[in-house]
Simulated scan of single mutants.
Amino acid sequence: MNRRTLLAATAALPLLAARKSHAAARPDLAHPGPGHVGPLNLITDVAGLAIGEAHDGKTRTGVTVILPDQRCTAAVDVRGGGPGTRETDTLTAGNLVRSVDAIVLSGGSVYGLAAADGVAAWLGAKGRGFSMMTQPGVPPSPIVPTAILFDLANGGDKNWGLNPPYRSLGLAAVEHTTRTFSLGTHGAGYGAGAGALKGGLGSASFVTGDGITVGALVAVNSLGSVIVPGTRNFWAGALEAGNEAGGLGATAKHVDEEDWGLAKLNPAARANTTIACIAVDADLDADDLRRIAMMAQDGLARAIRPVHSPFDGDVIFALSTARKPLPPGPRPLAVARIGALAADVLSRAVARGVFEATLPPGMTGQTWKMLPG
């Protein structure tokens, strides 16, 4: 070893020792250990959340409400080319209120935005909502961001004249919330279609080795297909936990770049939308949640092909119930971990929503369980 090499190596010793000492004292920088699927494998494994569902069988549509125990910080990310939303601007950076009293996912296209009216009325009657100060006779203003999907052409009776059912459906859903709820043809997924298959409501969860819970809820009404062309395997099959979506897992089948398989063949603006909510129990701020919602969009890209097209209205909300502190260590690293998990959990939720879907009474079409093989 020459003198220059020896001096460089000697100078590096304190730095190497410091790095080893730092790593030993900071186990949070390493993988915290194996995690597991939550006990319910639903978004409500995140403490502080309940879900309400309501549907109208005649109209073939429905509403899902995500109801936190108390107001919580939230964010949103919109990627589809034809979104339909309410109060999402409230959640953007620089605005006064970046928290929510509830989140609504609804069928019904633009008519479905009225589901938030019923939810807001229920919350306001209970004194829940935003207010700068308490004034006698002045109700609070519930913040209820909402996203809608298009299910108007599924054969249900939409001749509602001046009385679309969505306000009533929103009210019915928020009045009957629970931690255990049904997937598939329920709530906002009641009239949904995932490509050429029946779509539905899906949910999944994961608990990290250091105790952070990440959950996802999604209504799948996509232009794209959720299964690999020529197979029954979900695009998200590699991420499947146990037999939650049929147990087929991944496939090694090669797919042509422009083979969309069972995608919809008659796309139209706003006619195809996947709307979702990510929930975590870690104490995150609105900017952290915005990043997590953005990362979670990649979960849709892994589960649906194609996605985020001009004809889709894809929207993802993210919220925190703040029941647990972030693990010790750099905050950006924690956000990256949670965001990556959010994408995986959302992919699983998409597959579960289609796997669990059934045809409503009188509706024709094909479900995943009807596929050959």
Rank of each mutant, 00 (worst) to 15 (best):
L152N: 00
W160E: 06
P139G: 11
G209R: 12
R167D: 03
D285I: 04
G82C: 15
V76F: 07
G170E: 01
P361C: 00
V119M: 09
G193Y: 07
G187E: 00
V46A: 01
W368I: 03
I316L: 15
T180A: 12
P267Q: 05
L341M: 14
A252Q: 13
D101P: 07
S99L: 07
C72F: 06
D288S: 11
S21C: 12
A322Y: 01
G209W: 12
D77S: 15
P372F: 08
T64K: 00
A357P: 13
A334K: 05
A194N: 11
S21I: 13
T5V: 10
A340Y: 00
V174S: 00
G129E: 07
G107W: 00
T73H: 11
A50M: 02
L371T: 11
D312I: 02
N154E: 03
T88W: 03
A303D: 00
R302L: 06
T213D: 06
R352A: 04
H22F: 15
A172Y: 00
R270T: 14
R26H: 15
T177G: 08
G35P: 12
L6V: 08
I66D: 05
H22W: 15
L171G: 02
V65C: 05
S203I: 04
M132A: 15
A279V: 10
L201F: 06
D28W: 11
K198F: 12
A192Y: 08
L262G: 10
G242K: 10
N154W: 05
T88M: 03
D210N: 15
G249E: 01
Q297T: 14
G161A: 09
K264P: 00
L123H: 01
A204Y: 10
P164L: 01
V280S: 03
D281K: 11
W160Y: 12
K324W: 04
A279R: 04
A23I: 14
L319A: 05
V46F: 09
D285Y: 08
L183I: 09
K58S: 12
A188P: 04
V100H: 01
D69C: 01
T88R: 04
V37C: 11
D312E: 09
G94C: 10
G189C: 05
V307A: 06
L113A: 10
A322M: 05
R71K: 13
L29V: 13
D101I: 03
A303R: 01
L7A: 08
A196P: 03
T185A: 14
